[in-house]
Design a protein around this nucleic acid. Structure first.
Lengths: 206, 206
DNA sequence: CCTACCGATCGGTAGG
DNA sequence: CCTACCGATCGGTAGG
């Protein structure tokens, strides 16, 4: 009878759906995230699940948003105390490495953003693809800002193009995700740290 | 009535199916490669198509094999005349860059191997996942062989771990595929060439 | 290569 | 949140 209790329970159910949805999408992609299978996993009906989102697309967007929050908490927040520039860049990369190495609970199938980017990169523009692009652009810009700061402060060689650093950094982490997911290579985190250290070597550290 | 003519026609039909299947899979993944849609595109019946392969899985494996042949012709063969070691490594990277930049006819949705790797990396072992792993391992080993040759010949710094070079090389090309497919970034091929040149810099070229 | 069909599952709706 | 249902599509088969 109490509307507060019912609203709180509905909220908790929604949380459970999104959490499980993120895990399922990390394994099977946002396309493989089907309403029937997710409802079955959670022991609720399809229409009960769909009532929280309206459409599958809204469920996919909710999963993306949640993944973004998890990524932000695991990678950006731990580095937020470091000095802007090279120090923060290195802290972000270290947190990112640990995150791809260990975060199996929320993302049992690997980084959802990599999966979603590859899954939607050849699709026509639409709400989901646009959200994937927006998220990738957000992180790119955050990385770029710290690279620019580092170059301006003389912490990185001034002849390096900031965009070039970001391009290569992203590649290192794509390679890490690939090595861990497809080959289960236990040496991949160490290779990532080596590559990052070499790329982000200061002008006097050569 | 002539069995030769009929066999030749069947072969041509099979070729058309595989070719179109590779293109479809590069856009929608090997999972999104559905028999009904492919048959509709080609103007034949589902059962007519399936008669050439038996199962969807066999169709997926045929598409992977074809993609491998295309990749081999576009990336490995142009470099086959170069000297083993650093020279061939650089030639392979140049052909690979051009391939990801231009190969829109066979792979309108980008490199099928990247798509397939991300799509199947969290799946249980099975014929398709195993084939994806095998193909990736084949190219890894070819790259590794030339890196080892280059290090042994003193063309690359001897303190570098050959596996480290391969790890970083793959990352550069993942980043290229990502930039081209998700952002359509026209500067990505140039960034790739810059990154490769820096990674494969000889000991006396620093 | 075809038509005609199978059971299962898809996203989603009606009505409670 | 439920049951009961919708049309569409999935991979695949029977029989020619």
């Amino acid at each position: 009878m109490s509307p507060r209790k019912s609203a709180a329970e509905a909220h908790r159910t929604r949380e459970r759906i999104v959490e499980r949805g993120v895990a399922m999408a990390s394994v099977d992609g946002l396309g493989g995230l089907t309403i029937g299978r997710l409802a079955g996993d959670l022991g609720i009906s399809k229409s009960g699940l769909l009532g929280h989102f309206g459409t599958k697309e809204a469920l996919q967007l909710a999963a993306l948003r949640r993944a973004s929050e998890v990524f932000s908490r695991a990678v950006w927040e731990p580095a937020s105390g470091a000095e802007p520039g090279l120090a923060r860049l290195r802290a972000v990369c270290e947190a990112w490495t640990t995150y791809l190495e260990r975060e199996r609970a929320t993302f049992p199938g690997g980084c959802l953003f990599t999966t979603a980017a590859v899954e939607f990169d050849a699709q026509l523009p639409g709400p989901v693809r646009d959200a994937v692009v927006r998220l990738h652009q957000t992180w790119r810009h955050r990385l770029l800002a710290d690279v620019r700061h580092a170059v301006a402060a003389g912490e990185l060689p001034g002849d390096g193009d900031p965009e070039q650093y970001v391009f290569e950094l992203l590649g290192i982490f794509f390679s890490l995700n690939h090595s861990v997911q497809l080959f289960g290579d236990p040496a991949a985190p160490a290779r990532t740290r080596t590559a990052v250290a070499r790329l982000l070597r200061g002008p006097g550290e050569g």
